[in-house]
Nucleic acid binder design. Structure first.
Length: 423
RNA sequence: GGAGAGAUGGCCGAGUAGGUCGAAGGCGGUCGCCUGCUAAGCGAUUACACGGGCUUAAACUCGUGUCGCGGGUUCGAAUCCCGCUCUCUCCGCCA
């Protein structure tokens, strides 16, 4: 959510930012509502001030056993008028809030202007795909022939885009989770295991709601939602709090299952682990002072990359252009891992600086010193990494001509085996 | 799930036969004083949001709102009424 004072003071700048994003929102109506709101506020507050003053006068008169009936009658009328104005005010504030909640973040000045993923520049590339003297199989074929992934039965017990991991497949998923959590905690992130279900307010806080309700799994009969990412519970942990400046930066890592309805994505990546309604992810979340957030974004991205380096998986980093960025983000790097069967790089992590966009929605503030006024923190997060896609990348990049898969060095202590063969 | 108790400022804790209470007192914090150092002591100060005025801005100042959340009664609500949420205790159930 943007600062209404900032919007008021810089309407042209905000409008330009919205246009660059391709957001079809006009601020004119909003600014007109803002003006009306303040006019009503001035009137109603004046009336309330009068009522407060006269009410004290009534108290004084009654104590002195004098007649106050005239004033009471007068204030009754004032009270009626206040009630009417308060209702008008609530209506207009509701409308404004509704607009404000649907306005995306303003892109950082360093974000390239563009309309689609085709305009995302590559920042750097790490590693080179291993040459293969055979045709690489897609991970779903490998998973099925090794009997470690079961898409058929996953669909039977739940539905499409739900997968069962078996044997060393389950072990691989768990090993990757542990490798990531151990690595990140060693590098200064405090581990969190959050609830996988959150309330509506948390979903508002990080920006999934109200705009993207159709992408979420809500729990019928309740106001609860399955989390689409650990970002939601972990970021909202400090909602409505004022932190001490010396607590910052806060670095958290968190494993969670993630649940996404992604109604609009049907038809893409229908096979394999790439696009599931339920997947596992280790998330990195940071709370920083505003002046540090962009340096922290670089470090966070590097921490996510570090996992791919440990696994020796080739990847590249791209900057999302203005037209391709997520709703809440001010700047996003995507990390894309090489998938041989796709003959391309696919997203495995998304690292974003939200600046104060989420902090304002969720009410996460800090004091730079004990006497300072509270300011909004900056929040950042990134996948560190998506587990299912990492499994896919490991299977595909480490496959051999005979259909077996070599276990990457870094995972062997967790896996207990060097090679995955049909059992 | 059933029964009961509770929710006040950073923390503890007063305040309910409605009236000058944003809220006593204590602790903690900050600033100043004092003091070989430390400890102790003395004084002052110490919520947040929104809006008006002033201003480049801040500071300042005025006002409004906030005593879990939302609504109601009333000239006036921390105090009365209704709904909700959360916490605690006991019972039941349960991994």
């Amino acid at each position: 959510m943007l600062d209404i004072k900032f919007v008021r003071a810089n309407p042209a700048l905000v409008q330009e930012a919205l246009d660059k994003r391709g957001a079809k929102i006009s601020l004119d109506d909003f600014l007109a509502m803002d003006q009306k709101r303040r006019a009503i506020l001035v009137e109603v507050e004046g009336l309330k001030a009068e009522r407060n003053r006269v009410s004290q006068e009534i108290a004084r008169l009654k104590k002195a056993k004098e007649d106050a009936e005239n004033l009471v009658v007068e204030m009754r009328a004032v009270g009626d008028r206040i009630k009417v104005l308060d209702e008008e005010l609530a209506a207009i504030e509701g409308e404004m809030e509704n607009v404000l909640y649907y306005i995306p973040n303003i892109p950082h000045a360093s974000v390239p202007v563009g309309v689609s993923e085709a305009d995302n520049p590559v920042v750097r590339t790490w590693g080179t795909p291993k040459p293969m003297d055979f045709t690489p199989k897609p991970h779903w074929d490998l998973g099925e022939s090794l009997d470690i992934l079961d898409f058929q039965r996953g669909a039977k017990i739940t539905g499409a885009r739900f997968t069962i991991y078996k044997g060393l497949g389950a072990r691989l998923e768990r090993s990757i989770i542990n490798l990531m959590l151990n690595t990140h905690t060693d590098r200064g992130y405090r581990e969190i295991l959050p609830p996988f279900i959150v309330n509506r307010q948390s979903m508002m806080g990080t920006g999934q709601l109200p705009k993207f309700a159709e992408d979420m799994f809500g729990i019928s009969g309740t106001e609860y939602f399955l989390i689409p990412t650990a970002e939601v519970p972990v970021t909202n942990m400090y909602g409505s709090e004022i932190l001490d400046g010396d607590q910052l930066p806060i670095h958290h890592c968190a494993y969670s299952a993630c649940f996404r309805a992604e109604a609009g994505a049907a038809g893409r990546d229908t096979r394999g682990l790439i696009r599931q309604h339920q997947f596992n992810k280790v998330e990195l979340v940071k709370f920083t002072k505003p002046e540090d957030s962009y340096a922290e974004l670089e470090k966070l991205t590097a921490d996510a990359e570090h996992i791919l380096q440990l696994l020796e998986l080739p990847y590249r980093v791209i900057t999302l252009c203005t037209g391709d960025m997520g709703f809440s983000s001010a700047k996003t790097y995507d990390i894309e891992v090489w998938l041989p069967s796709f003959e391309t790089y696919r997203e495995i992590s998304s690292c974003s600086n939200f600046e104060d966009f989420q902090a304002r929605r969720a009410g996460i503030r800090y004091r730079s010193n004990p006497k300072a006024k509270p300011e909004f923190v900056h929040t950042l997060n990134g996948s560190g990494l998506a587990i299912g896609r990492t499994v896919a990348a490991v299977l595909e990049n480490y496959q051999q001509a005979d259909g077996s898969v070599i276990v990457p060095e870094a995972l062997r202590p967790y896996m207990g085996v060097d090679v995955i063969r049909p059992e």
